[in-house]
Design a protein around this nucleic acid. Sequence first.
DNA 1: TGTAGTATATTAAAAATTTAATAAACTTGT
DNA 2: ACAAGTTTATTAAATTTTTAATATACTACA
Lengths: 406, 406
Amino acid sequence: MKAFFSNDFIKNTNEGRLIQQKIRIIQAISQKGHGITVPEICEHLQISAPTGIKLVNQLQREGVLSIVGKKETVNGRRPIIYGLKDVAFHAVSVEILLKRVSVGIIDSEFNILYHKQKTDFELENTPECLAGIELFIEECLLDSGIKEDTILGMGVGITGRVNQSTGESLSYFNFMDQSLGEHFSNNFQIPVFLNNDTRCFGLAEKIIGKARQVDHAIVINLSRGLGTSLIIDNKIVNGAMGFAGELGHMQFGRKDKICLCGKSGCLGNDVGGYALESDFIEKLSEGTQSLLRQSDKNKPIRYDDILEAALQGDNLSIRLIQDMGFKLGNALGNIVNLLNPELIIIGGKFSRLRDILLGPVNSGLANSSLTNTLNHCKVEFSELGALAGLKGAGAHVFDYFELIKN
Amino acid sequence: MKAFFSNDFIKNTNEGRLIQQKIRIIQAISQKGHGITVPEICEHLQISAPTGIKLVNQLQREGVLSIVGKKETVNGRRPIIYGLKDVAFHAVSVEILLKRVSVGIIDSEFNILYHKQKTDFELENTPECLAGIELFIEECLLDSGIKEDTILGMGVGITGRVNQSTGESLSYFNFMDQSLGEHFSNNFQIPVFLNNDTRCFGLAEKIIGKARQVDHAIVINLSRGLGTSLIIDNKIVNGAMGFAGELGHMQFGRKDKICLCGKSGCLGNDVGGYALESDFIEKLSEGTQSLLRQSDKNKPIRYDDILEAALQGDNLSIRLIQDMGFKLGNALGNIVNLLNPELIIIGGKFSRLRDILLGPVNSGLANSSLTNTLNHCKVEFSELGALAGLKGAGAHVFDYFELIKN
DNA sequence: TGTAGTATATTAAAAATTTAATAAACTTGT
DNA sequence: ACAAGTTTATTAAATTTTTAATATACTACA
């Protein structure tokens, strides 16, 4: 099966066309999510019935298709439904974050068949660090026991700046004479699709999350930092150099904080786990009381704890998170005016706090967005959980081969 | 020729495929901008040489193609170049603005073959106003003398909110049981493509202007008001409801001015001809001197005059326009961070003031945009002139039929 | 000037596809 | 239960396309 897809250059001959047509049948079945009939194939591929039957028979003989049943129709002879038989496609997903590497294997329905994390890890721009990652991936591939020839490709999400089209990682592992994507591809001998970790998250929402039915959405990844993926005309926006989505440096923040980028007023300094921690400590030092502070006076306060405290009803935590929600909504309103999306998805660690955040975010939006535009834009919270980024990385593979159910 | 293209539904038969292949040959020639050879056709359509020759011969017999010459090659028999013969495609362009209706006829190379303006006009949301427009279009079509069967379609740019995909105009002529696009299409019996006037301007820049070689750009239409078209992944962004590009209501303006939208701080109140007029009058009343004021004390000051005065060296005019440029650049910088475009085009009436505006716009950009992103983003000024919008409206037609040179 | 090398054009045989006719399967109504 | 109507599956003839062999056109080099 793999040969079908991995063969990038299909010759302009009869045989080549045959292979292409077979691929399109497999893709059509995957996209439908269930079996297909010969008349549907003929309609889709613009071929006649005898040719459609010929292709189906060949695919049956090759062990790819089998008869699944008959389609229920109002009248006339019922067409036979053909389904994919025993053909499991897999993708390797890799997520490279600052302090963690994750490897997963997913199938075309985005079930995670295998998953392993490496947490004794620190991302550094060195050959040694890269070699460590590759060793880990290799171990996982062996450990998983997945047959090599069912793996269509590898999707990699890496933190920092990425040029998706060239497979370049501009922030890390940029010391080679080839792009990181090419390097992985040569090393593992499979097609590799590299993207930014946040955009992987956005793709996951688009393909298996809440943005499924939607062509225009803003996907916020709100955890320690603030990441954004833009979905426009049903595609993730990468930007000219792959830098798109830098919502964190829009000038909607407090002017008294200086950002790492050198400017003041960056939204990312006001919104996100890191900002929450410093705001919280500031308020405590001003004497505000909090449930959280009373537990252990020496342990440093982490934003996860503040989120948890807010869910437990801690007043200070709730108030700070609400403030943050308003600021985020206000900034988003400006983008809503600009891009006119129909959906905003808030994901990441903060997505658990739907009940606390939704109101302030909506208030912020109403403060800056045009009524007419806002009326057609909903705010939702992600339900994909912790493995969303990993699923999104793998989704690139199935997306490329057009095997994703729609 | 028209039958080829206007026939939306091409049957799944041999004859249908033949017609499709012929269309693709014509499209390929148009896209290349010059003739095509048989091997190129075979490569492009994935067909064999005998079939390619058969199609070319048929098209020659039908009077569509003719031999143009032979291709210069390094070695081997030189292939014959076939070019489009006497086949002129035309599009009708209509621009409906608040106080003006323009009708033009353009060819596939965007030459304006005919052009007429109606200035005794006031846009109103009434059947009478619509009937007046249609009468004017009909007059122009007759007057132009262009053969009906060479007209592929009509592109309409109308001010206000537009849903491009449905052909709906949401601000004007929304009183019918069909969309404005459908209405025009039924009335004139040709395919009609409706879009917002500013987005037409953006399309013109993309197709025949400075955004030609670029996949990601922001096109600013700066005249009396402030309009924006976003080009992302080589396509004009329409947004979920066709509202995309509302840069004018981003909250980067002065908080003491209330916008028509009901909010304060809208950029459109600070940037544009209207804002320039009120700023100018304000400064004059404060006692600032200007060349412009000395000419005629009773005539109301129009922003065109201020632009002209600035070009003549008037200090106040220059200073106000420079302030405006900085504010615009600063707002744009935020969008540059978000969308990572490689080009910003400033068009409209202000585009003449390149030398005055460029510096402040760049300063504003540097103030809010990330260095890395900004380094890959140029600022250019439109050179398309007054008929850009009209050309863009017609461009939709050639774009749809894939006849545009690339 | 002629030969080797390369690429396009043309042709006739082989292969593949479509068309059209027919068979099979299914629903509905009498 | 059977005929009428509808849709899919299968088959054989007609058509179309590709393949492969050959002819033609052009460059470069001796």
